[in-house]
């Protein structure tokens, strides 16, 4: 463990929907620069936890600390401003827009010109556009989606859409990247490719990553830190090796003798 304060720390987070507990008293910390995997059976509360971290849901109890600041509730906008980016389980791209426009919206917080300047195409607007475009094109190059730059996102195949969504998240130059099943529904080749992109992101930009993944092989290769959830509770937390030998984790995945 490093001596630095963790980038993200969850303390005693609980969340319920109409009285049904989705998350019960979960605490864990994510260190700067690591890739942390959230695993657990379906319905364990993994996606809900990501939604709490970036403010889509507000927790009933608990504190989220990000970058040494504490929040009892995070707003989605606030999370984005703090440098938390996100992809979704069921792809939440802007389907009627081109790949380039999707990536450019990812940079919306970096835009300096106001809408009056944009409307008159003067002042800071033209130079601003060019600088945002350069950054967006860098991300597009990085994820090798150049040839689909002007395609409408809704018309692209599933695997590419996943990549465009990652591009949109990366375009915001995030400190923390939340990936909800980035490899769901992919074949092995596509999974390997996506894993490589995630690793490259972490190495090149020092981005901290929290990801949800069901493929244990991928998780063990990719991440240095694994948190296991079951029925909304944390049952394991540690390095892949530690988690692999944790009896509670084995019980959650394989069942126990009763």
């Amino acid at each position: 463990m490093t001596a630095h304060a963790p980038l993200l720390e969850l303390q005693h987070i609980s969340l319920s929907f109409k009285g049904i507990k989705a998350i019960t008293d979960i605490s864990f910390a994510v260190q700067q620069g690591e890739i942390c995997a959230l695993i657990g059976p379906n319905g364990a509360g993994k996606s809900s936890l990501l939604n709490v971290i970036n403010g889509v849901y507000q927790p009933d109890e608990g504190v989220i600390s990000f970058n040494s600041k504490s929040y009892s509730r995070m707003k989605a906008h606030q999370a984005a401003v703090q440098g938390i980016a996100r992809t979704f389980q069921n792809i939440a791209l802007f389907k009627g827009m081109s790949v380039l426009d999707n990536v450019l919206t990812g940079r919306n917080l970096k835009v300096r010109s106001n809408w009056l300047e944009q409307m008159l195409n003067s002042g800071r607007a033209p130079a601003d556009y060019v600088s945002q475009r350069i950054k967006a094109e860098e991300v597009i190059d990085f994820l090798r989606i150049n040839q689909w730059r002007n395609s409408i996102v809704g018309t692209l195949p599933y695997g590419l859409q996943k990549r465009v969504e990652l591009a949109r998240a990366l375009a915001s130059e995030p400190r923390l990247l939340l990936l909800d099943e980035p490899m769901a529904g992919m074949n092995n080749e596509e999974k390997a490719e996506m894993s490589a992109f995630i690793l490259d992101t972490q190495r090149e930009f020092g981005t901290t990553v929290v990801l949800i993944e069901h493929d244990i092989g991928v998780v063990m290769n990719l991440s240095g830190h694994v948190v296991v959830l079951d029925y909304g509770k944390k049952v394991g937390d540690g390095t892949p090796d530690e988690v692999r030998h944790n009896p509670e984790v084995i019980a959650a995945y394989l069942g126990t003798k009763h």
């Binding site: 970036n54 403010g55 889509v56 989605a76 906008h77 999370a79 984005a80 401003v81 980016a85 996100r86 979704f88 939440a92 791209l93 802007f94 389907k95 009627g96 827009m97 426009d101 450019l104 919206t105 990812g106 919306n108 917080l109 835009v111 010109s113 809408w115 944009q118 409307m119 195409n121 607007a125 556009y129 945002q132 949109r168 998240a169 915001s172």
Partner: peptide
Amino acid sequence: GELGRRWMAVRDMDTAAAVIGIP
């Protein structure tokens, strides 16, 4: 321009738009 992209983002998926920081 940027405002047009924000409009379309809100139109296509407002949750995602909020998550990437669009007010």
